[in-house]
Amino acid sequence: MNEYQRAALRTAAPRDKSNEVFHLLLGLVGETGELAEKAKKIVRDKGGDFAQWDTEDLKKELGDILWYLTILADHFGLTLDEVATTNVAKLADRQARGVLGGSGDDR
């Protein structure tokens, strides 16, 4: 994941660019919204049959989301390996305690 992060950073704006964090957050939300919009159309037009999702298109949309997430993490000095490792550890802890379901960040 860190290799991807290094490659993605070569296409990013400088960290000190004005409003860059805001740009990255809006980009992440926008790309996630595009993915949700395509999912909505599968529900609306294809009876919710996600087997009909164009996986090449899905791959591109997920890649756009990954890019924004990657650059945003770097902006705050985080590597994708750190983010992924922390997330897996958090989920494993919740699973061990039987609280994967439910709500709240600190469960």
Rank of each mutant, 00 (worst) to 15 (best):
A8M: 06
L9I: 04
R10Q: 10
A12K: 00
A12F: 03
A13P: 03
A13H: 08
R15K: 12
R15G: 09
R15I: 09
K17T: 13
K17F: 15
N19I: 08
N19L: 08
N19W: 05
E20R: 11
E20D: 12
V21S: 13
F22E: 13
F22Q: 11
H23T: 13
L24F: 01
L24T: 00
L24I: 03
L25D: 01
L25T: 10
L25E: 04
L25N: 01
L26I: 09
G27H: 01
G27R: 00
G27C: 02
V29C: 13
G30I: 02
E31W: 00
E31C: 05
T32Y: 06
T32E: 03
T32L: 03
G33N: 06
E34R: 04
E34H: 03
L35D: 01
A36C: 08
A36L: 07
E37S: 15
E37G: 12
K38Y: 15
K38S: 11
K38M: 14
K40M: 14
K41M: 08
I42S: 04
I42P: 00
V43D: 11
V43C: 08
R44H: 13
R44L: 14
R44C: 15
D45T: 09
G47Y: 05
D49E: 13
F50Q: 06
A51T: 13
A51G: 08
A51I: 14
Q52P: 00
W53C: 04
W53Y: 13
D54V: 12
D54A: 14
E56G: 10
E56R: 15
D57F: 15
D57P: 06
L58M: 08
K59R: 14
K60Q: 07
L62Q: 07
L62H: 02
L62V: 07
D64V: 05
D64A: 01
I65D: 00
L66S: 05
W67G: 01
W67R: 02
Y68V: 02
T70F: 00
T70A: 01
T70L: 02
T70S: 04
L72Y: 01
A73G: 11
D74Q: 10
D74W: 02
D74V: 02
H75S: 09
H75R: 15
L78C: 13
L78Q: 06
L78H: 04
L78E: 04
T79A: 01
E82W: 07
E82R: 10
E82K: 10
E82T: 05
V83C: 07
A84F: 10
T85P: 10
T85E: 11
T86N: 11
T86L: 15
T86I: 07
N87L: 13
N87K: 14
V88K: 14
A89E: 06
A89I: 15
K90F: 10
K90A: 10
L91D: 11
L91Q: 12
L91G: 07
L91P: 00
A92M: 07
A92W: 04
R94Y: 06
R94I: 11
Q95C: 08
A96G: 11
A96I: 04
R97H: 06
G98P: 00
V99Y: 06
V99H: 05
V99Q: 09
L100Y: 08
L100D: 13
G101M: 09
G102L: 05
G102A: 12
G102M: 09
G102R: 06
S103D: 09
G104K: 03
